[in-house]
Design a protein around this nucleic acid. Structure first.
Lengths: 234, 234
DNA sequence: CGCGATCTTGACGCTTTCTTGATCCGGCGC
DNA sequence: GCGCCGGATCAAGAAAGCGTCAAGATCGCG
């Protein structure tokens, strides 16, 4: 992956800070891609597959924490958050969402570079075991990076909830995932109406199973939860 | 490696801070080993192979940075440095010596715990493909992580009660588990009708034993309880 | 504001699981 | 042999859980 020098994705809306960071990183011989918005950041993370992401939390079009979560769905790339917000709550939120480090503005350039080196160390070691960004079962192919699902050649459209549900099952292939856990992952910590799950599992089966009435992959464990099989039933 | 909860090595000479951290970490169900000196820290890192090291820089018998360097010679275990020194120079030195994070005293407990979780995430990813806890007897394989049961190659479906009952027996493999205890574990504290047990043990034998009428693993101790043998009968 | 897509909710029939009672079995003391 | 006891087995009804459909509510976008 790193034939060349490490590639850094900088997601930052303040031109001032970018003008400060750009020459600093270039001077270390890092390659650099820049995004100014959350949306653009996620897109560039997809398309450029950087070795490290430097992410400002305060973006014009959305929360940086949400960016972190979205990237974490498919990539273990190290994410260093930089933020003006120094409250403990902010740090914990970002770190638990999947960030690897949290720097408070203003920060010293030497410290940033040192933490960047730590992140790159991790990336180098981690890349040996990079989880597959594409998951397949039967004739279904789920590209976690592109957020697309295909059956054979044709693309299948999934709604946001359907997709999140599927991703959660994929992250636990072979394991039974309890109702509680699925609800928490997909609907957030408040939900407990597991009637949702029946409806949405039904829709997933409708879209992904050959015979939705006799599912071979999306299995039910009555009274416990659901599970994506790693080998087909029957 | 992590059959149990994560093991943390705390290298810290101030008794005051240890008294603060100890209950906090224990409360998170982490296991804890403590060292008061640099020398002891390196020794315990060797002997206990912790999942994370919390390392104070200011130790009586040597520099924490040196400890980091020594451990890095042979182990990639995540090291979180905690230090009163907040100078950028200190951070860079520690991080470049191999530390993964650097916290300045005083720090909030929530932040420490969040950074600890980050470190544990890294540690977990380093050890490829964490195998589940699996228990086998005869041709039966119980995967406790996936909540699945196999006989030979074919999967056996167990209802929630059947599964709970089996797991309880597995947790006490080789030992007799009394009727009372089984009922409490599986049906909750209210139950006392041990007719349940006969029915459900029968179903388990039906599903798991070669000759359900002559069980070789799921043994009855008349008047006392049931027991999962650790070696087959006869 | 209006439209389509998505989400939520309720109703209903079906399947699985649980509970319970009836019956059977084998050992033991009388 | 007979009656008793704890355990095993079987089956049927009750209860809980599941799948499906569809009608509204809500959201997002133009």
């Amino acid at each position: 992956m790193t034939e060349h020098s490490p590639l850094i994705l900088l997601v930052e809306d303040e031109p001032q800070l970018r003008r400060f960071l750009r020459p600093m990183l270039r001077a270390q011989n890092y390659r650099l891609v820049e995004a100014e918005t959350a949306r653009e950041g996620v897109a560039l993370a997809h398309s450029h597959n950087p070795d490290v992401i430097l992410l400002d939390l305060g973006l014009p079009d959305g929360d940086g924490v949400e960016v972190t979560r979205q990237i974490r769905v498919w990539s273990p790339v190290p994410i260093i958050v930089i933020s003006a917000r120094g409250k403990e709550q902010d740090k914990v939120g970002a770190l638990d969402a999947g960030a690897d480090d949290y720097l408070i503005k203003p920060f010293g350039s030497a410290e940033l570079l040192a933490r960047l080196r730590v992140a790159l160390r991790h990336a180098a070691r981690g890349s040996l075991a990079t989880p597959d960004a594409i998951h397949t079962f039967g004739d279904v192919r789920v590209d976690l990076g592109r957020r697309t699902v295909h059956r054979g050649e044709v693309e299948v459209h999934l709604t946001p909830h359907e997709y999140k549900l599927l991703v959660t099952l994929i992250h636990n292939v072979g394991k039974v995932v309890t109702h509680r856990q699925l609800l928490r992952e997909v609907w957030g910590p408040g939900a407990q109406e597991n009637h949702y799950l029946r409806v949405y599992m039904g829709q997933l089966r409708q879209k992904l199973e050959e015979d939705p009435a006799r599912p071979r992959w999306l299995a039910t464990d009555a009274g416990v939860g659901y599970r994506l099989r790693d080998e087909p039933a029957r």
